[in-house]
Design a protein around this nucleic acid. Structure first.
Lengths: 120, 120
DNA sequence: CCCGTGATTCGAGATCGGTCAATATAGATG
DNA sequence: CATCTATATTGACCGATCTCGAATCACGGG
Protein backbone atom coordinates (compact mmCIF):
# COMPACT_ATOMS: atom_id res chain seq x y z
CA UNK A 1 0.00 0.00 0.00
CA UNK A 2 2.44 2.68 1.09
CA UNK A 3 1.41 5.91 2.70
CA UNK A 4 0.95 8.32 -0.17
CA UNK A 5 0.85 11.41 1.96
CA UNK A 6 0.79 13.62 -1.11
CA UNK A 7 2.66 16.85 -0.69
CA UNK A 8 0.23 18.56 -3.02
CA UNK A 9 -2.54 18.30 -0.46
CA UNK A 10 -0.33 20.14 1.98
CA UNK A 11 0.12 23.13 -0.25
CA UNK A 12 -3.61 23.43 -0.58
CA UNK A 13 -4.05 23.24 3.15
CA UNK A 14 -1.32 25.39 4.64
CA UNK A 15 0.29 28.70 3.88
CA UNK A 16 4.04 29.15 4.01
CA UNK A 17 5.33 28.26 7.42
CA UNK A 18 6.60 31.80 7.90
CA UNK A 19 3.03 33.11 7.74
CA UNK A 20 1.50 31.41 10.73
CA UNK A 21 2.43 28.62 13.13
CA UNK A 22 1.96 25.13 11.74
CA UNK A 23 -0.52 22.91 13.46
CA UNK A 24 1.11 19.81 14.86
CA UNK A 25 -0.86 17.82 12.31
CA UNK A 26 0.40 19.79 9.33
CA UNK A 27 3.90 19.75 10.79
CA UNK A 28 3.81 15.97 10.89
CA UNK A 29 2.74 15.68 7.25
CA UNK A 30 5.20 18.27 6.00
CA UNK A 31 8.01 16.59 7.93
CA UNK A 32 7.36 13.39 6.00
CA UNK A 33 8.10 15.16 2.74
CA UNK A 34 11.26 16.80 4.01
CA UNK A 35 12.30 13.46 5.45
CA UNK A 36 12.04 11.94 2.00
CA UNK A 37 14.59 14.48 0.77
CA UNK A 38 16.77 14.25 3.86
CA UNK A 39 19.10 11.61 2.50
CA UNK A 40 22.07 12.12 0.16
CA UNK A 41 21.36 9.03 -1.91
CA UNK A 42 17.71 9.97 -2.35
CA UNK A 43 18.65 13.51 -3.36
CA UNK A 44 21.02 12.13 -5.98
CA UNK A 45 18.44 9.69 -7.30
CA UNK A 46 15.83 12.41 -7.42
CA UNK A 47 18.17 14.82 -9.16
CA UNK A 48 19.23 12.17 -11.66
CA UNK A 49 15.64 11.48 -12.61
CA UNK A 50 14.61 15.12 -12.67
CA UNK A 51 17.48 16.13 -14.90
CA UNK A 52 17.26 13.14 -17.20
CA UNK A 53 16.11 13.56 -20.78
CA UNK A 54 12.33 13.65 -21.14
CA UNK A 55 12.12 14.08 -17.38
CA UNK A 56 12.03 10.39 -16.77
CA UNK A 57 14.45 7.55 -16.25
CA UNK A 58 14.34 3.83 -15.60
CA UNK A 59 16.15 2.36 -12.63
CA UNK A 60 18.85 0.92 -14.84
CA UNK A 61 19.64 4.39 -16.17
CA UNK A 62 20.42 5.86 -12.78
CA UNK A 63 21.70 2.87 -10.81
CA UNK A 64 25.29 3.16 -12.05
CA UNK A 65 25.53 6.73 -10.77
CA UNK A 66 25.13 5.87 -7.09
CA UNK A 67 27.17 3.30 -5.28
CA UNK A 68 24.65 1.46 -3.20
CA UNK A 69 23.10 -1.91 -3.93
CA UNK A 70 20.15 -2.22 -6.23
CA UNK A 71 17.69 -3.20 -3.46
CA UNK A 72 18.73 -0.08 -1.60
CA UNK A 73 18.03 2.05 -4.64
CA UNK A 74 14.64 0.45 -4.96
CA UNK A 75 13.94 1.25 -1.32
CA UNK A 76 14.87 4.89 -1.71
CA UNK A 77 12.75 5.27 -4.82
CA UNK A 78 9.82 3.89 -2.90
CA UNK A 79 10.31 6.47 -0.17
CA UNK A 80 10.29 9.27 -2.73
CA UNK A 81 7.23 7.83 -4.40
CA UNK A 82 5.36 7.49 -1.11
CA UNK A 83 6.12 11.14 -0.42
CA UNK A 84 4.43 12.08 -3.66
CA UNK A 85 7.63 13.40 -5.21
CA UNK A 86 7.92 10.69 -7.86
CA UNK A 87 5.60 8.50 -9.86
CA UNK A 88 6.55 5.21 -11.48
CA UNK A 89 5.30 3.35 -14.51
CA UNK A 90 6.21 -0.09 -15.77
CA UNK A 91 6.96 -0.43 -19.49
CA UNK A 92 7.94 -3.95 -20.40
CA UNK A 93 10.81 -5.14 -18.31
CA UNK A 94 11.72 -1.68 -17.10
CA UNK A 95 10.19 0.68 -14.57
CA UNK A 96 10.34 4.37 -15.36
CA UNK A 97 10.31 7.08 -12.72
CA UNK A 98 9.23 10.67 -13.26
CA UNK A 99 9.15 13.69 -10.96
CA UNK A 100 5.90 15.36 -9.93
CA UNK A 101 6.49 19.05 -10.68
CA UNK A 102 3.57 20.35 -8.63
CA UNK A 103 4.85 18.52 -5.59
CA UNK A 104 8.17 20.27 -5.91
CA UNK A 105 6.48 23.62 -6.42
CA UNK A 106 4.18 23.05 -3.47
CA UNK A 107 7.11 22.31 -1.23
CA UNK A 108 8.95 25.42 -2.38
CA UNK A 109 5.81 27.48 -1.79
CA UNK A 110 5.57 26.18 1.76
CA UNK A 111 8.96 27.73 2.45
CA UNK A 112 8.70 31.20 0.93
CA UNK A 113 5.72 33.55 1.20
CA UNK A 114 4.50 33.23 -2.36
CA UNK A 115 7.08 33.91 -5.02
CA UNK A 116 5.75 34.11 -8.56
CA UNK A 117 2.68 33.45 -10.63
CA UNK A 118 1.52 29.94 -11.42
CA UNK A 119 3.89 28.05 -13.72
CA UNK A 120 1.85 27.83 -16.94
CA UNK B 1 31.45 24.74 17.50
CA UNK B 2 28.70 22.99 15.55
CA UNK B 3 28.84 22.34 11.87
CA UNK B 4 27.44 25.49 10.30
CA UNK B 5 27.01 24.00 6.88
CA UNK B 6 25.28 27.15 5.71
CA UNK B 7 22.55 26.51 3.19
CA UNK B 8 23.34 29.81 1.53
CA UNK B 9 26.65 28.49 0.27
CA UNK B 10 24.78 25.68 -1.39
CA UNK B 11 22.58 27.97 -3.41
CA UNK B 12 25.62 29.73 -4.72
CA UNK B 13 27.21 26.43 -5.66
CA UNK B 14 24.44 24.37 -7.20
CA UNK B 15 21.55 24.98 -9.53
CA UNK B 16 18.13 23.54 -8.85
CA UNK B 17 18.38 19.80 -8.56
CA UNK B 18 16.09 19.40 -11.55
CA UNK B 19 18.66 21.09 -13.77
CA UNK B 20 21.56 18.70 -13.49
CA UNK B 21 22.52 15.74 -11.29
CA UNK B 22 23.82 16.65 -7.87
CA UNK B 23 27.35 15.65 -7.05
CA UNK B 24 27.49 13.28 -4.11
CA UNK B 25 29.20 16.05 -2.18
CA UNK B 26 26.47 18.60 -2.79
CA UNK B 27 23.85 15.96 -2.12
CA UNK B 28 25.36 15.33 1.29
CA UNK B 29 25.33 19.01 2.22
CA UNK B 30 21.84 19.63 0.92
CA UNK B 31 20.56 16.57 2.77
CA UNK B 32 21.74 18.12 6.02
CA UNK B 33 19.45 21.09 5.49
CA UNK B 34 16.45 18.97 4.59
CA UNK B 35 17.22 16.78 7.56
CA UNK B 36 16.98 19.80 9.81
CA UNK B 37 13.43 20.35 8.60
CA UNK B 38 12.51 16.67 8.61
CA UNK B 39 11.04 16.65 12.10
CA UNK B 40 7.56 17.77 13.15
CA UNK B 41 8.75 19.47 16.33
CA UNK B 42 11.46 21.36 14.50
CA UNK B 43 9.02 22.48 11.83
CA UNK B 44 6.68 23.77 14.51
CA UNK B 45 9.46 25.59 16.33
CA UNK B 46 10.69 27.10 13.08
CA UNK B 47 7.22 28.15 12.07
CA UNK B 48 6.54 29.65 15.48
CA UNK B 49 9.67 31.76 15.30
CA UNK B 50 9.18 32.75 11.66
CA UNK B 51 5.61 33.86 12.21
CA UNK B 52 6.25 35.62 15.52
CA UNK B 53 6.03 39.37 15.73
CA UNK B 54 9.21 41.14 14.62
CA UNK B 55 10.35 37.84 13.12
CA UNK B 56 12.01 36.77 16.30
CA UNK B 57 11.10 34.97 19.50
CA UNK B 58 12.79 33.88 22.68
CA UNK B 59 12.65 30.26 23.74
CA UNK B 60 10.18 31.04 26.50
CA UNK B 61 7.77 32.48 23.93
CA UNK B 62 7.55 29.31 21.91
CA UNK B 63 8.17 26.59 24.47
CA UNK B 64 4.55 26.40 25.66
CA UNK B 65 3.36 25.64 22.13
CA UNK B 66 5.15 22.31 21.81
CA UNK B 67 4.88 19.50 24.29
CA UNK B 68 8.43 18.27 24.60
CA UNK B 69 10.87 18.94 27.40
CA UNK B 70 13.00 22.06 27.56
CA UNK B 71 16.27 20.27 26.75
CA UNK B 72 14.65 18.74 23.70
CA UNK B 73 13.56 22.16 22.47
CA UNK B 74 17.06 23.45 22.99
CA UNK B 75 18.43 20.50 21.03
CA UNK B 76 16.09 21.10 18.10
CA UNK B 77 16.89 24.80 17.97
CA UNK B 78 20.55 23.92 17.81
CA UNK B 79 19.93 21.62 14.85
CA UNK B 80 18.12 24.39 13.00
CA UNK B 81 20.86 26.86 13.85
CA UNK B 82 23.61 24.51 12.69
CA UNK B 83 21.76 24.11 9.39
CA UNK B 84 21.93 27.86 8.90
CA UNK B 85 18.16 28.25 9.09
CA UNK B 86 18.14 30.19 12.37
CA UNK B 87 20.41 32.57 14.21
CA UNK B 88 20.36 33.22 17.93
CA UNK B 89 21.24 36.17 20.07
CA UNK B 90 21.41 36.47 23.82
CA UNK B 91 19.75 39.50 25.38
CA UNK B 92 19.99 39.42 29.12
CA UNK B 93 18.57 36.24 30.51
CA UNK B 94 16.79 35.35 27.32
CA UNK B 95 17.96 33.98 24.00
CA UNK B 96 16.18 35.20 20.89
CA UNK B 97 15.95 33.20 17.69
CA UNK B 98 15.40 34.65 14.25
CA UNK B 99 15.01 33.01 10.84
CA UNK B 100 17.53 33.54 8.06
CA UNK B 101 15.38 34.55 5.08
CA UNK B 102 18.07 33.96 2.46
CA UNK B 103 18.54 30.42 3.68
CA UNK B 104 14.87 29.74 3.17
CA UNK B 105 14.92 31.32 -0.25
CA UNK B 106 18.05 29.41 -1.23
CA UNK B 107 16.42 26.15 -0.26
CA UNK B 108 13.30 26.95 -2.24
CA UNK B 109 15.44 27.91 -5.23
CA UNK B 110 17.21 24.57 -5.07
CA UNK B 111 13.86 22.90 -5.65
CA UNK B 112 12.33 24.89 -8.47
CA UNK B 113 14.14 26.26 -11.53
CA UNK B 114 14.18 29.92 -10.59
CA UNK B 115 10.88 31.43 -9.61
CA UNK B 116 10.86 35.21 -9.21
CA UNK B 117 13.09 38.20 -8.77
CA UNK B 118 15.06 38.73 -5.59
CA UNK B 119 12.91 39.72 -2.58
CA UNK B 120 14.15 43.26 -2.04
C1' DC C 1 7.49 -23.93 -20.37
C1' DC C 2 11.86 -22.65 -18.73
C1' DC C 3 15.45 -19.19 -18.33
C1' DG C 4 17.43 -14.57 -18.17
C1' DT C 5 17.07 -9.87 -16.89
C1' DG C 6 15.12 -5.92 -14.32
C1' DA C 7 13.01 -4.62 -10.14
C1' DT C 8 10.78 -5.26 -5.60
C1' DT C 9 10.26 -7.41 -1.09
C1' DC C 10 12.06 -9.71 3.08
C1' DG C 11 14.92 -10.28 7.08
C1' DA C 12 18.79 -8.97 9.76
C1' DG C 13 22.62 -6.15 11.36
C1' DA C 14 24.41 -1.65 12.44
C1' DT C 15 24.02 3.12 12.95
C1' DC C 16 21.35 7.36 13.55
C1' DG C 17 18.19 10.34 15.90
C1' DG C 18 14.55 12.06 19.30
C1' DT C 19 13.61 12.14 23.91
C1' DC C 20 14.15 12.79 28.83
C1' DA C 21 16.27 13.46 33.62
C1' DA C 22 20.16 15.29 35.59
C1' DT C 23 23.55 18.58 35.49
C1' DA C 24 25.91 22.71 34.02
C1' DT C 25 26.25 27.54 32.40
C1' DA C 26 24.81 32.55 31.84
C1' DG C 27 22.92 36.47 33.55
C1' DA C 28 19.99 39.22 36.86
C1' DT C 29 18.92 40.52 41.44
C1' DG C 30 19.27 40.89 46.22
C1' DC D 1 28.36 35.93 47.25
C1' DA D 2 23.80 33.42 47.32
C1' DT D 3 20.11 32.46 44.69
C1' DC D 4 16.72 32.49 41.19
C1' DT D 5 15.29 32.12 36.20
C1' DA D 6 16.37 30.96 31.44
C1' DT D 7 18.87 28.19 28.37
C1' DA D 8 22.42 24.72 27.11
C1' DT D 9 24.94 20.35 27.60
C1' DT D 10 25.54 15.46 28.99
C1' DG D 11 24.44 10.66 29.11
C1' DA D 12 21.46 7.02 28.34
C1' DC D 13 17.52 4.66 26.25
C1' DC D 14 14.89 3.09 22.53
C1' DG D 15 12.67 3.28 18.23
C1' DA D 16 13.53 4.61 13.36
C1' DT D 17 16.28 4.14 9.34
C1' DC D 18 20.01 2.77 6.11
C1' DT D 19 22.12 -1.00 4.19
C1' DC D 20 22.96 -5.52 2.34
C1' DG D 21 22.27 -10.52 0.71
C1' DA D 22 18.80 -13.69 -0.35
C1' DA D 23 14.53 -14.65 -2.06
C1' DT D 24 10.66 -13.30 -4.88
C1' DC D 25 7.95 -11.15 -8.49
C1' DA D 26 7.21 -9.32 -13.41
C1' DC D 27 8.22 -9.69 -18.31
C1' DG D 28 10.11 -11.16 -22.62
C1' DG D 29 12.37 -14.53 -25.52
C1' DG D 30 13.95 -18.92 -26.87
Amino acid sequence: MSKQIAVTDLSVRCSPLVRQPLTSHDARDLALVFKALADPVRLQLFSLIASHVDGEACVCDISPAVDVSQPTISHHLKVLRDAGLLVSERRGTWVYYRVVPVALQALADSLVPESSGAPS
